[in-house]
């Protein structure tokens, strides 16, 4: 009896081992997401992974793997390494992480990697939020001494926006860091531990948007104030605007610079087909996203702005946010 089951289990083990093999297989496209499972980027990648194989002949299946760490910088570094899984792997990161990595490289005298951009399916101006019952009602009120902001780490956009306000406007803003993610930061906002959070929320039911970060002089049809315009100093405002543009496209999909251009082109074509597919649009919108794609060319143009920055400008930028 025991021998019978032993043989059965041994057989199952070989099948299980073979099931690990998709990571090594050519007909499977791997989506590596730079954040934890269940986050907004992860969910978007999972919805895309379900539909993309229907629009590309090369792959039968797409699987999602999470590689969190340092707000996405870990995955960015992995994607740029010569050992990166180039041909059958696409990476998902917020543009903010990609450009921050480029800035770090330039600051350290290293030529930044050139990701092969595929597309970004969602774009939005980042904003700041307060709890629905908060006494704060205007954008000016979040720029007063003693107001506390919640953020994850010091490399996150949630930290950098208030930090740039603090330096440029010479304010005593209190930025609380160390929360594990957007959900935990918004929970701290709701329970009154912090006053403001500048991150994208999952659910806006008990929140109020107090302003957004747009290009200098930009006005929004919602009537909300453009927070960039409230940065006091001209140079600081210009530098803050850079963050605005880097944060606009979210869920950026790219391949390693070691991947072939043909492979990247095939994925771009597949994405272009997929975003016309009503089944995909329905699933994507059901998950709470608004489809608003940014093309690979546009992403290249945005990235170029960072890759072309001088070390002196970057130093001023870093000084502003640190």
């Amino acid at each position: 009896m025991l021998e019978y089951w032993t043989r059965k289990v041994a057989k199952a083990l070989f099948i299980l081992a073979a099931s690990t093999a998709p990571a090594f297989s050519d007909s499977v496209l791997t989506f590596k997401v730079g954040y934890g499972a269940g986050g907004i980027t992860d969910i978007a990648a999972r919805v895309i992974s379900r539909h993309l194989p229907n629009h590309i002949e090369t792959y039968d299946q797409a699987v999602v793997e999470n590689v969190p760490g340092a707000g996405g910088i870990k995955l960015l570094r992995l994607s740029a390494s010569p050992k990166a899984e180039a041909q059958d792997t696409a990476y998902f990161l917020a543009f903010q992480a990609i450009s921050s990595g480029a800035l770090d490289d330039i600051e350290n005298g290293v030529t930044p990697a050139r990701p092969r951009f595929i597309s970004a399916l969602v774009s939005d101006f980042p904003g700041c939020w307060v709890a629905a019952d908060s006494p704060i009602s205007t954008a000016e009120q979040i720029l007063q001494d003693g107001v506390s902001y919640g953020a994850t780490g010091r490399g996150s956009s949630g930290y950098r926006f208030p930090a740039s306000f603090r330096s440029a406007n010479k304010l005593a803003l209190d930025v609380v860091t160390g929360y594990s993610g957007a959900a935990e930061t918004f929970a701290a906002l709701e329970r009154g531990e912090v006053d403001v959070v500048c991150l994208p929320p999952l659910d806006t039911t008990n929140l109020r948007r107090i302003g957004y970060f747009g290009p200098i002089g930009h006005t929004d049809e919602s009537g909300l104030p453009n927070l960039t315009d409230l940065v006091a100093d001209d140079e600081a405002r210009a530098l803050t605007e850079l963050f605005v543009f880097q944060a606009m496209p979210v869920f950026v999909m790219f391949m390693s610079e070691h991947a072939s251009e043909q492979a990247a082109e095939a994925l771009r074509a597949a994405i272009a087909n997929m975003i016309e597919d009503t089944a995909f649009i329905s699933d994507f919108e059901r998950a709470g996203y608004v489809l608003n794609p940014t093309s690979a060319q546009e992403l290249d143009r945005l990235y170029e702005k960072f890759a072309a920055m001088s070390p002196e400008t970057i130093e001023r930028l870093m000084h502003l946010i640190e």
Binding site: R46, A187, L202, T205, N206
Partner: peptide
């Protein structure tokens, strides 16, 4: 409040969103 207590709850949270439900009120 849509605050997952563990990695498995994070994925479950994702499942809610994929099915058009946002955890919260």
């Amino acid at each position: 409040i849509g605050l997952p207590g563990s990695a498995s709850m994070s994925l479950l949270l994702g499942a809610f969103m994929i099915h058009g439900m946002t955890p919260g009120p």
